[in-house]
Computed example of a mutant assay.
Amino acid sequence: MKFNDRTSPLTLLATRRSGRPREMTAPGPDEAELRAMIALAARTPDHGKLAPWRFVIVPPDARDALSAMLTDAYRAEKPEAGRLEIEAMDNFARMAPALVVVLHSPKPSHIPAWEQELSTGAATMNLLHAVHAHGYVGGWLTGWASTSDRVRDAFGAAHERIAGFVFIGTAAKPLEERPRPLIDDIASIWHG
């Protein structure tokens, strides 16, 4: 494990940025590092200890198969698709050195579905924090592939949903800071 030990936990939180997967390059994490990141991601709030999320690692040698599956699913759902759209599916499958598909996998329980969805989002965010702590950059993408039942079926079951595709690698150029909301616009004090 190569934790970025040059910074404090607060600095890690303050410096995490999302990277554009198409701009990520090698090196990326190996399988052991990915498993360590997932172990950290699983340390998320989880009312009822249900683990309503799953992580599917797509190894580099499966990227051709991912491209074929995405292309076939896209063509089946959008038969009028043009060459550029199909190329976009292939490009999506090949971005960044590493890829983890996060699935929302709700469990039958008295725990409300909404809480399970929140836990999945928190687990995905924890994965991004773990990626940063290991010295890599991550990008969480959704889009058409995350809403396609055909794509979902390639990774999971009918009751699951794709929460996102987390691409991981090394930033090819410095990450840009995006505008953040002003604290006074998003936080208030309730006085009763």
Rank of each mutant, 00 (worst) to 15 (best):
R150L: 14
S119D: 04
P52L: 13
K2I: 09
P106D: 05
L99W: 10
V137M: 01
P60H: 12
R180M: 08
T25M: 08
E80D: 14
A73C: 12
E80N: 08
T25G: 01
A73S: 13
E33D: 15
D184Y: 07
I168Y: 03
H129G: 02
M69S: 12
R54P: 05
P108W: 08
A81S: 10
L128W: 01
H47G: 09
N126C: 07
T170Y: 02
T7W: 09
N4S: 14
P21E: 04
T71G: 02
A163S: 12
D61C: 00
A93M: 02
L10E: 13
P9Y: 04
A41M: 03
R17D: 05
R63Y: 01
A26P: 01
E117G: 13
A88S: 14
D149H: 09
L84I: 06
A98T: 09
R20A: 15
Y74T: 06
Y74E: 04
E80M: 11
A41C: 05
R75L: 15
S8W: 01
R35I: 06
L182N: 14
D184I: 08
T71Y: 03
A154S: 14
L12D: 10
K2Q: 13
R161S: 12
F3L: 15
P79I: 09
S105M: 02
A133M: 10
G19W: 05
Q116A: 14
E176W: 00
A36E: 15
D149W: 02
E80G: 12
M89C: 10
P108Y: 14
T44W: 02
P97W: 09
A113M: 12
N4F: 09
V58P: 04
N91T: 01
P79D: 06
F155Q: 03
P21W: 03
V151H: 07
V58M: 07
G28N: 09
E87H: 08
S148Y: 13
P45Y: 05
A172L: 00
K2P: 09
R22L: 01
W190G: 02
T15Q: 13
A42L: 10
G139I: 01
V101T: 04
L40D: 12
P181K: 13
M37E: 03
E176K: 13
A93L: 05
E33R: 11
A123D: 01
R152G: 00
A172P: 05
G28Y: 06
P174S: 04
E160L: 00
A187C: 15
A51D: 12
R43A: 03
G156Y: 00
D90I: 13
P45F: 09
S146H: 06
L10R: 11
L12F: 02
P9I: 08
V137I: 07
G192P: 02
P60W: 14
L175M: 07
D149Q: 11
R180V: 12
F55C: 06
L12H: 15
T142M: 07
R43K: 06
R63T: 02
D5T: 15
E77F: 12
A88L: 11
R20K: 15
L66D: 04
G138H: 04
